[in-house]
């Protein structure tokens, strides 16, 4: 040990010599790289009309909707995530589930806050769970995927409301059951297709179970919704 220490001491002594003494002012040139003007124009969004900006974002959201509908192309939803689409879907679903219960205080329908909390809290739980199981997906990517995959259920909600306009008998219940079941399996399938690739192969079932539970609860809420007359 002593030998090793001896051999190391000169090394450290040499290192201390390298440090710049305080008397010498630190000098240097700072170059601001001047980009080519064409490049600047390309990436500058400051002077474009607001309409273009909004349209571009909406197009991006719309493209992701299409990706959820055809879950085969699985990389785009993960690559550039955003939370606008999930927020839009979540608010739409919550507003439609709210129904007429604002007017009648006795209604036990799902409140706006409840739906909102279920969706976001549930997504966060699923994401944390997938992180804990050793998934390699980032937090917001997972939130984005789970949020976008609510879309089939939102569509089912629209259909259910339309069906309920016609009347609420056994036939309408059967139609709603079929629609909700289909959209529930669609949601689960789509989100699984996006999420499972980032998980260790032997644990896919453990990741899918909470996703299944999440969409099941939402689907069940959609199915049992009935506007108070």
């Amino acid at each position: 040990m002593a030998e090793v220490d001896d051999s190391r001491k000169p090394m450290f002594a040499g290192l201390s010599d390298v440090s710049i003494s305080a008397d010498i002012p630190v000098e240097g040139e700072i170059n601001v790289p001047v980009g080519t003007p064409s490049q600047d124009d390309e990436y500058s969004t400051l002077d474009e009309p607001v309409k273009d900006t909004i349209l571009r974002d909406l197009t991006a959201v719309g493209k992701k909707f299409v990706h959820v509908m055809y879950p085969k192309k699985s990389s785009a939803l993960l690559r550039d995530w955003d939370l606008w689409g999930p927020l839009l879907l979540c608010v739409t679903l919550a507003l439609m589930l709210q129904g007429n219960s604002v007017d009648s205080k006795e209604e036990g329908g799902p409140q706006f806050a409840e739906v909102f909390v279920i969706i976001w809290f549930g997504s966060v739980i699923i994401t944390l769970n997938s992180k804990l199981l050793g998934g390699t997906i980032s937090f917001f990517q997972s939130l984005c995927v789970l949020g976008y995959c609510i879309m089939p259920l939102t569509v089912a909600m629209v259909v259910c409301r339309l069906v309920l306009l016609g009347g609420s008998g056994t036939v309408s219940f059967i139609i709603r059951l079929v629609v909700v079941t289909a959209s529930f399996s669609w949601s689960t399938f789509a989100s699984t297709a996006f999420l499972v690739d980032s998980q260790p192969p032997n644990r896919k079932a453990l990741v899918v179970y909470p996703v299944f539970l999440f969409y099941f609860v939402i689907g069940w809420m959609v199915l049992t919704f009935s506007p108070s007359a």
């Binding site: 909390v117 739980i125 909470p210 539970l213």
Partner: peptide
Amino acid sequence: PMMLVFTLVAILLHGMKTSGTVIREGTLMG
């Protein structure tokens, strides 16, 4: 255990809804 607790939460929600529970302060979920 975590998954079982969440499952139980979902089942309880279902039970509360079908039994027509009304909670005025706070949500069924909470």
